[in-house]
């Protein structure tokens, strides 16, 4: 657990880097978490983040990755292109770790991430 802050904004992240209280989230908090993750947010990235939050609050699940790109009119693979690891986008969106959702890279040089789900 750690608290990160920037000027007067504060956020509490758990050991894995997830925001402990999703309701605490706003776009400034997103920038804060992004900085923790070593990411500088662009408008394209913010549109992904906003979609993830909207989806989560409606469906309580992680969306199919290509569905995100289609719905926000970006190229397939938009999440990986922008964040490499989709879970990084999820963290920046301030959303909680979900059961059975893992994204795995097998490439030490690192651009290929895959979803692992229980069969």
């Amino acid at each position: 657990m750690k608290t990160v802050s920037c000027s007067d904004i504060k956020a509490t992240l758990d050991d894995e880097g997830f925001l402990t209280d999703s309701a605490e989230w706003n776009e400034e908090v997103a920038c804060l978490i992004a900085a923790e993750e070593g990411v500088e947010l662009t408008e394209e990235m913010m549109s992904i983040i906003r979609f993830l939050r909207g989806y989560y609050y409606e469906y309580h699940a992680f969306p199919i990755l290509r569905q995100v790109c289609r719905d926000i009119h970006q190229a397939r693979g938009c999440i990986q292109d922008n964040f490499v690891d989709p879970m990084r986008a999820w963290k920046i969106a301030g959303l909680p770790h979900l059961v059975g959702v893992e994204f795995i890279s097998t490439d030490p040089e690192g651009r290929i991430y895959e979803t692992s789900t229980p069969g």
């Binding site: 469906y59 309580h60 699940a61 979900l98 059961v99 059975g100 959702v101 789900t117 229980p118 069969g119």
Partner: peptide, 23 residues
């Protein structure tokens, strides 16, 4: 966790991922 998480989600919501009906 990788077994019990999905197993309990399945018991609770119907499937390993915990997808709700509308999802």
């Amino acid at each position: 966790d990788w077994i019990m998480g999905p197993a309990s989600a399945c018991y609770h919501k119907g499937n390993h991922l915990g997808l709700e009906p509308h999802t």
